[in-house]
Design a protein around this nucleic acid. Structure first.
Lengths: 335, 335
DNA sequence: ATGAAAGCGCTAACAT
DNA sequence: ATGTTAGCGCTTTCAT
């Protein structure tokens, strides 16, 4: 693989001139530019961003740290980030913290070592340690989705309190009087804000003494457990407000498990939309490919090649698919 | 920010010794190790992966190139990749090609410039140009999801032909005689394989002369258009086999639009599962946060900070949420 | 408009 | 077990 110096030699110019052509910086005569460009093409030269970054202190790399890319909410967010990055010739590293402060710390370290130019962070917890760490390492941060106090960064989030207020009012408007909220963790702003909106709606309706607040985590398991707990403690419950989509999913499973109908017996509302096709009435019958497993396997193979652990011949791994029968297909009633 | 040399000086050792401590390589006495580690902590030293990569030719970075991370199938795959990478202290850059060869080329270039150690590639098209490009630049590739001919890489995919065969047999077993398949692009192995499985099932059932094959692309729009086209050309159609989840979604929309019931009038099956909660009967009423928009905005802000385009004070952007009323909540029928 | 010199921060290769 | 030397490939700085 040719390096910049090779191009310079062959084009009969100094390295810096090649650099100027490649980066469109400084003055280069048309003739020189063309000559250099021709050689670049001829030799198939690919500039080395690593070397460039070492010198210029710019990696043209961003990081997106979310709790779980598998949540459609964060998937969409990721796509938004990536589109902007791509348009600006930036590259995005992404990280899943699973709401764990330990993982967040580990990633923060990895990202600082990589000298990413900036981080888009969905904080996994309420404290500002990670952000301070980035600041200490001169890495720009924009906080996403959740407020953090005591830091100075741009922050983008949506109006959880208002959303929760309206969602709760909606339930009240439908006649519900015993409404539980299953929030995420304490200390996470989205959790707290949603509880605040819920409380406001209740107290405005004179239901301030019926508050039923459960803190847990923003995952399905927590939704499941706390919904069970709520139904035991307050059998008269007629509505549950799930802190996010995963929590609601867990809650609905718990209700079904208790033999309760949604919304017949208990109404459920939640934060965070789901992709459009999740709402199609006729549920698809599908051939399910093991996507996660495929990703896992492929990454392991790749790492083995990289580390030289494997020198075997290349292989083809064909994973089985599973047919999942659902409502979208039925018997032929025509001809 | 301290560099390796600072640590070396302060600990009274040579730079290479610090390097050995940090990388756990070579021999270092316990005493020296402890002294160095203490200084590392004291000064808050963060090793520079860029410099390390320049010298060692290892970036500890992988890239995952999919068509669209927004498709739950690829989201799961991404999470699988990321989990493995994280466990091995690798970092993942991810890229969406939207099935465009142009975008694929652009990314290939960016990734080569970044000297990623390896690429997990879902090829956007049938030809091997991108893979050859990576090979020429000594970058390991594992191909995911789709076969490519004429290349030597590990490849992980699932058994599309068999899945399609079984899906089609299932429809035949339900009495369907006019079954259309709406595949992805021609030349993409998953497309071709699914058509092959479909054909095999038909011909085994003596329906070989009823083949109705539509090639398009693996997206909703294509599913919509081709389903319309299929219904016009073959009004007696009673079943549609969507090439993937997005295609099926488009097809179902088209059918609904034509006043047809699924599965009452037309059965639909497809490849690729959807996340579990897409199948919950009671559709959630939710407060929808503008996730994509949030990601986009945040990335733009970050880039402006990085490039120094903005020096204004940090701001808070609170985006509105939208209440989406669905079946999961109804009137209180109890007390 | 072009170039020379120096060095970004680290580690490979070779001592000792 | 520790150190010396050199250099990865590029760009910054300062000349001309």
């Amino acid at each position: 693989m040719p390096i910049l110096l090779d191009i310079a030699k062959r084009a009969g110019v100094a390295p810096i001139t090649v650099s100027r052509v490649i980066n469109n910086s400084g003055y280069v005569s048309q003739a020189t530019r063309e000559r250099v460009e021709a050689v670049v093409k001829e030799l198939g030269y690919v500039p080395n961003t690593i070397a460039r970054g070492l010198r210029s202190k710019r990696t043209h790399t961003l990081a997106l740290v979310v709790t779980d890319i598998t949540n459609p909410y964060f998937t969409s967010m990721a796509r938004g980030v990536e589109d902007v990055a791509e348009a600006n010739n930036y590259t995005v590293i992404y990280c899943n913290t699973d709401e764990s402060e330990t993982k967040e710390k580990k990633y923060a370290n990895m990202l600082a070592q990589r000298r990413v130019d900036g981080v888009l962070l969905v904080p996994s917890c309420g404290n500002a340690n990670t952000i301070k760490f980035f600041e200490a390492n001169h890495i720009n941060v924009v906080v996403l989705d959740r407020r953090i106090s005591g830091v100075e960064t741009d922050i983008v989030y949506s109006d959880s309190k208002n959303g929760a207020y309206r969602l709760t009012k909606l339930l009240i408007g439908l006649g519900h009087k015993r409404i539980a909220i299953i929030a995420g963790s304490r200390g996470v702003s989205t959790s707290e804000d949603r509880v605040l909106g819920y409380q406001q709606a209740l107290s405005e309706a004179g239901l301030g003494d019926t508050e039923l607040i459960y803190y847990g985590a923003f995952n399905e398991q927590s939704g499941y457990q706390l919904a069970n707990q709520a139904m035991i403690q307050t059998p008269k419950l007629t509505a549950i407000f799930g802190g996010n989509n995963f929590v609601a999913m867990g809650a609905i499973k718990a209700l079904h498990n208790l033999g309760l109908d949604v919304p017949g017996d208990v109404s459920v509302v939640s934060f965070d939309d789901l992709p459009e096709f999740m709402f199609m009435k006729p549920f698809l019958t599908v051939a399910r490919q093991p996507a996660y497993e495929m990703g896992r396997l492929a990454a392991e193979l790749l790492l083995k090649r990289i580390t030289g652990e494997t020198h075997e011949e290349q292989r083809e791994f064909i994973l089985p698919v599973e047919i999942v029968m659902r409502e979208s297909c039925g018997p032929n009633k025509n001809s």
